[in-house]
Amino acid sequence: MMSKILIIAEHDSNTLNPSTAKCVSCAAAIGGDCDVLVLGSGIGDVSRQAAALEGVSIVIETDAAHLAHPLAANLAPEVAAAAGAYSHVLGPSTTFGRDLVPRVAALLGVNQVSDIMAVEGPTTFRRPIYAGNAIVKVDVPAETTVVGTVRAASWKEAATGGSASIESRPASSEAASHSRYVSLEAGDGERPDLQSAKVVVSGGRAFGSAENFEKLYALADKLGAGVGASRAAVDAGYVPNDMQVGQTGKIIAPELYVAFGISGAIQHVTGIKDAGTIVAVNKDADAPIFELADIGLVGDLFTVIDEMMALLD
C-alpha cells in the first residue's frame, strides 16, 4: 500500500519554518504522497510557501482565529481530525513539533517515533537515544498510523519549485477553554542562544584573554551565530561558565560548528558530536579535533578570524 503522508507545518503566521521543508525530505525518503497541513489564522503566505516545496501534493489550510497561536490543545484535535486519511503524520522535532505531535499521537491512540534521523522503510526508522550516544531501529506495528517527529540536523530542506494545490479545510473543533496564549518574548535580538543556534562559533584557551574573545563575538554577530567555549577557556576566566560546550557544559547540535583554537578533547567533542558540519581552526596540525572536523584549517586563529570578517562583508 502506498504511503500517504501528512506533514504539520510550523510557521509564525508569515513565514514557513525551514523545519517543514526538512519534514518533506523525510517524507520523500518514506515515499508516497505528501500533503502539508497549515493551521493558523491569516496564513495565506505560509500556505503558498508550503505549496512551493518540491514533492508536496496538496496543502491543506485550516484558517481559524483560535489557531492563531500554536497551542497544542487547539491544534492537536485539528491534526487528529485530518489524519484519518493518512498512513503517516509527521511534524518537526522542534519545540513546536515536540509539544504538538505527541498530543496528536495520543488522540490517535498510537505511540510516536521521536527524532527520525533516517528512514529504512515506510514503517522502519532510525532514531538517536541517550543524547545521541546510541542509535536504534524502530518499527511501527502494522495497521497503525505512523506518527513521528523529524530531527532537523539529519535532513536537508526540500527544494522549492513545486506547485501544490491549496485546499481549505474548516476547523473541526472549538477553542479549548482551558488554555490561553499570553505572549511570546523573542530572544533579546542579539546573539542567538547557544543551544538553539543554527551556527555556533567557539573558542579555546588559545584566545589568551577575555578581550581577545571580542574578536570571536564580532565574527559571531556577522554570522548570526551563538558563541561557545571550551572548558579551558572557561577555567582561564576568559568567558562565563554558561558558554561551556561539552561533557560538563552544553550538548549542542548546530548545523555549523566552528571551533577556533580548541584541541578537541573527548570531553569537548561529546558536546558537539551531533553537529551538522564541524570546522576546526587550530595552529597545531596534530590536534585531535582535526580527526573529526569536516573542514580543517591549520593556521593562526586571529588571522583566520580577521580574514573571515573581511570576506563575509
Binding site: N111, N133, A134, V138, T144, A293, G296, T303
Partner: peptide, 25 residues
C-alpha cells in the same frame, strides 16, 4: 497499545576527518 518495536542498538557512526583547506578564503 501496540508498542513500537525497538531493536538493533548501535553506537553512533564515528565522524571521520573531512577535508583540509589552506586559508580563510
Amino acid at each position: 497499545d501496540a508498542p513500537l518495536s525497538v531493536s538493533d542498538f548501535a553506537p553512533p557512526p564515528a565522524r571521520g576527518g573531512g577535508i583540509k583547506v589552506d586559508d580563510a578564503a
